[in-house]
Design a protein around this nucleic acid. Sequence first.
DNA 1: TCGGTTCCGATGCGGTTGCATCGGAACCAT
DNA 2: ATGGTTCCGATGCAACCGCATCGGAACCGA
Lengths: 214, 214
Amino acid sequence: MPKQVDHDGRRRQIADAVCLLVDEHGLEGVTLRDVATRAEVSMGAVQRCFRTKEEMLRFALAHIGERVAQRVRRRLAAGPAQSAASELGLVAREVALLREEHRAEARIWLAFIAAAAVNPGLAATLRSSYADLEELVVRLLAEASGGGAAEPTEVRAEGAADGVAEARAVDRIEARTVLALADGLTAHVLVGHRTAAEAEEVLHAHLVGLWGRR
Amino acid sequence: MPKQVDHDGRRRQIADAVCLLVDEHGLEGVTLRDVATRAEVSMGAVQRCFRTKEEMLRFALAHIGERVAQRVRRRLAAGPAQSAASELGLVAREVALLREEHRAEARIWLAFIAAAAVNPGLAATLRSSYADLEELVVRLLAEASGGGAAEPTEVRAEGAADGVAEARAVDRIEARTVLALADGLTAHVLVGHRTAAEAEEVLHAHLVGLWGRR
DNA sequence: TCGGTTCCGATGCGGTTGCATCGGAACCAT
DNA sequence: ATGGTTCCGATGCAACCGCATCGGAACCGA
């Protein structure tokens, strides 16, 4: 068992470098050489960790997706005392990546979304991240609508058709609305069509309307 | 006055080729050579029409932005009889580019948005398209909320602070919500996280809620 | 110590890129 | 015709791309 290296750790290190470059110059500005330089490894090391560039990008996408999701989960774990209502607000704000310190993540996310539109491989990776996020928001809405926090894992049953399942369909639509709205606002902020404050205002207004309707 | 060429026409012709390529392979898949081939002109002609590749992309972006906006305007001009409420629905659906035949435009639009996030020049071009669209939707909402169709051009006054101006601030927020939601849904559909039908459902539900609240 | 295995840095290669260049075709007023 | 302009197609170029290759450094069990 000769020279051993923390491959997974190095992969993450390289993925971070990829994210940095994507943030600065977009996905087109990512070259193996630049990635190697930013990650402070040689090109050979990069090529050892990832068989091809596409594989590297895919890993980087999953990497940052996990980073965002984890921040959302941490946010939820931190303040479970408040109402589910205000929690959704926090989560939405977290997903929308409106705060200045998350602007980089937002740019990266958007770049990958656009790439995924013409790259099935990236699209598949992206979808799994989205699915996680949606499930999380649906659960939050379901709890808010009365179900309580009991058995939070068995939400995926789609077949059962009673009053509760009906309510959950509404929850799902509203979850999808919030997530799409968040993504749209993020994009608008990134291109400078909307300021972060304006976006926050729009998001807030939507959430207020949402709770008022219930 | 020697050999004269319809420069503007050729520019549009080239822009169409750019859009085709962006739709197929994303913005990175756009090379001067391929553009020339698709536009059925020589590379020299492309280089004569646009000093640089960036200039060409900018023109193409404005080109397709205008194409979408024009379709929206045409949609409005076609059916002015219906209520402003249902008209907004039509416009939103038009902007969201959910229908299969507009999927290409959606991909192109998304690609440019992502590029604009790291390219100030494209961002500026994109913003003007967005501003037009937003003004249009705001006007539609203002008409729906009671002002009627009178003097549809003087909507941009921001200073006046009376009851009417207040109502218009709400309209503006709702317009921004609808537009961001449409863009977010478009992105979700393009990456396959959402089907077009689901997106349509979400959009419809939002609009219904919007009118119910008034 | 040493043999075997894993890792990596350097280098090379074929292909592609955006852009510059330029000779000549196309055209019109004269 | 012809001269002056405008246009364009072909070609060249330097840079860069992703990827393959490979000799040797690094390392560990025996």
